[in-house]
Nucleic acid binder design. Structure first.
Length: 138
DNA sequence: GCCAACGTTGGC
DNA sequence: GCCAACGTTGGC
């Protein structure tokens, strides 16, 4: 079981749109980075991902779950990239901001901080739990 | 809106 | 295969 973090600009695709997509979920496409693609391909049905709002908000707002493993991204003409499908699981009671992740030494090693341009990354379980708990405290 | 960091492209 | 030029992402 691997845990993940997915980045999206809420302008383009937000957690609320993800909620509206319902239990079948929605295609997560548009990834045009090889490292992110390689991560996408490793994702398995049932695995959970943090949903991060980049640019606007800069915070982890909720959790989604993989419902379909990597398949060719239809929006990519060259057929080089892949997409997955995810469905909404829950919103964090309190979004966990990039700032608070940076401040917490236990999780400041995350690629979210050290490799800010990567849009799909794995999260070790320890860090997952820390962030999850941060999101539970109102 | 700017720009640093990083990834990709293409000429050689 | 190197690397300069260019494009994109995302924090600020």
């Amino acid at each position: 079981m691997t845990y993940w973090l997915l980045k999206s600009e809420p302008d383009v695709w937000s957690i609320d749109q993800q909620i509206k997509a319902g239990s079948k979920g929605a295609v997560w496409d548009g990834v045009r980075n090889y490292q992110a693609r390689n991560n996408l391909k490793k994702m398995k049905v049932g695995e959970r991902c943090f949903f991060y709002h980049s640019n606007i908000g800069k915070e982890i707002v909720g959790i989604v779950e993989v419902t379909k493993e990597a398949f060719p991204d239809k929006t990519d003409k060259n057929n080089k990239f892949f997409a997955v499908q995810v469905r909404f699981v829950e919103k964090l009671e309190k979004p966990v901001s990039l700032e608070s992740i940076k401040k917490n030494k236990k999780i400041s090693h995350l690629k979210l901080i050290t490799q800010s341009r990567l849009s799909v990354m794995s999260i070790d379980y320890k860090s997952w739990k820390i962030i999850y708990n941060m999101g539970k405290i109102k």
